[in-house]
């Protein structure tokens, strides 16, 4: 059994490409249930040696508006081991970063807070032209809690990380591209098609360190590396 239909996530393997589809529409709020189900999908991914690439995208218009804040605050206040609870949420997303196969997030609509943090753990980010992103946690007296500050700083530099995290302001797709947070801007209707094409195009002996080379070759329409 390689396909799985959960309440907030659908996981299906087509050929050797894994599709992680967020199905808790309309806003794909990242609830406790979502993180638990990510844990289940994580196990399936780690146990499947045949996967060539993973695509992450929403079924509807919006990637995700981030965590369910009321639920998270309540849970952390009640939980006897709140830090461990938070770390398990972290682990259910951060494993994406260290996978040996490419992980491509397709950002469309709204992608805020922990949702952007999840996308930042991916190796590639294909972004819809009308997407809106941000790490607004400080405006709720919190900080990005799932590695977002580190990943933002690695991609966009320390100055931008400080600026965007402290102000919590949202930004559009063009800004995200200029900051180096996303790799390609694509019309919304072609996003998934293009991401799938890219996943199939990537060589079997993929190494994450060569990311920029792959993007360049893909952009030129040449298939150089195998």
């Amino acid at each position: 059994m390689s396909n799985l239909q959960l309440n907030t996530i659908e996981w299906k393997v087509d050929g050797r490409i894994g599709h992680l589809i967020m199905v808790n529409e309309p806003s794909n709020t990242m609830s406790m249930e979502f993180f638990r189900e990510m844990g289940v999908v994580k196990d399936m991914i780690l146990k499947n040696p045949r996967l060539k690439a993973i695509l992450i995208y929403p079924r509807g218009r919006h990637f995700s508006s981030g965590v369910d804040l009321d639920e998270l605050l309540r849970e952390i206040s009640r939980h006897p081991e709140a830090e461990k609870y938070l770390q398990s949420n972290y682990a259910s997303l951060s494993f994406l970063e260290t996978l040996p196969i490419p992980v491509i997030s397709v950002i469309t609509g709204v992608c805020l807070g922990s949702a952007l943090e999840m996308a930042l753990f991916s190796h590639f980010r294909f972004c819809g032209e009308t997407a809106v992103m941000g790490l607004p946690e400080t405006t709720f007296n919190l900080i990005p809690g799932i590695g977002g500050i580190r990943r933002f700083a690695n991609l966009a530099g320390r100055v931008n990380a400080l600026d965007f995290v402290l102000t919590g302001r949202t930004f559009d797709a063009r800004t995200a591209l200029d900051l180096g947070l996303v790799d390609l801007l694509i019309p919304r209707k072609k996003l998934i098609e293009k991401a799938l094409e890219f996943a199939l195009w990537l060589p079997g002996n993929y190494v994450q360190e060569m990311k920029q080379v792959y993007l360049k070759r893909y952009g030129e329409g040449t298939y150089g590396i195998c």
Binding site: L73, I76, S77, A82, L86, Y90, L142, G145, I146, G147
Partner: peptide, 21 residues
């Protein structure tokens, strides 16, 4: 990154508790 993640969780939990209160 493991240590930084643990610290981040610790700080986040403190802030979340304060915000919840």
């Amino acid at each position: 990154s493991e240590e930084a993640a643990r610290e981040e969780s610790r700080i986040f939990c403190q802030l979340a508790k304060e915000e919840y209160t």
